[in-house]
Amino acid sequence: MDLKEFGRLLKEERLRQGLEIADVMDKTKISRMNLVAIEEGNEQALPHPVYAKGFVKNYARFLGMDADKMGNTLAQIYVSQEDSEYDDLVLADAKKLPGVREGVPRAVLMAAVLVIFSLVLGGIWLFKDDIREVFTWGRADDAATVTGRPSAEPFPGSVPIQEEIPGESAPALEGEPGSLAFPSLAEEPVGDAPEDARLPELQSLAEESTSVPEFPDTPTEAPPAAPTDAPSHEAVEPPAPPVTEPEQPASATIPEQPEETPTARAPVLAPAGVEKTLEIRATENCWLSAQADDARPREAFLRPGERFVITFANTLELRLGNAGGVNLYLDGEPWPLSAQSGEVMSLRFP
């Protein structure tokens, strides 16, 4: 329906009731000009849509038609065109200058967001190294403290290696528990303990972390043997090598395993013969940085009496902050080092 048809509808209704335009004017007080414009559907002469809708509603009500329906119909065919124009007008008005003004804060906002984002990223990038350093520092310290124990002298070099063992050997053990674990353990006096009790023991030897939740089972089901074998972490650590080494022949005799075990053991056991161990004993406070082979440099700060032990296969780059305050022992032999206290020295082994 367009405006002309809509106007005709009203006009026909008015004529049907035998009313003149003047009668309508008298009752609705709508001016003749507007009434004619509505009836003829003359868009140019019609007032603003809001007014036109009000007029049509009044007119329709006067004629006894559904005022709201007529009003809404007009709103659909007339207001929509005009309103969009009006909106355009308002928007155009609004965007003449403020469009620029509005644009600037948005750009500034975006820039601010970008700057903040890049700052955060930069911060993370900067601190990433620090975080790693802190981490490695902690590890170096661990090594130093472990080696502080006199009895553990041959061990400390293998501390990082031992860390690898649980990860590598655990799958091997868990993958073939029946074939691998039983022959090695069968000779032991624990043999008469039930299977459930033995498996956790094995796992506790191989993987310290899993041993903790399993413990409650072992004392109840295997009363005499279990406590001696797996009482706590520290007790587990020393017997670890003896247990894993007997496995080596055991696994070698089994034909299913040979491919996996050598690869798993290779980095652990093979270099052990070639590896050299450097021990640094501090007599004064000394900072040092050591890079064994291609590994990440490790840093440590030694106080008098402390030791730092590092193992390396091929090369070791050592940097001492106070070369006069330390004594070096390579594979247990004193290594000559002539330096003044407070002298900084870079060394390279071999």
Partner: peptide, 12 residues
Amino acid sequence: LREETSLPITVV
């Protein structure tokens, strides 16, 4: 209001 003012009245 229409009677009193003789003007067309529109309620929004």
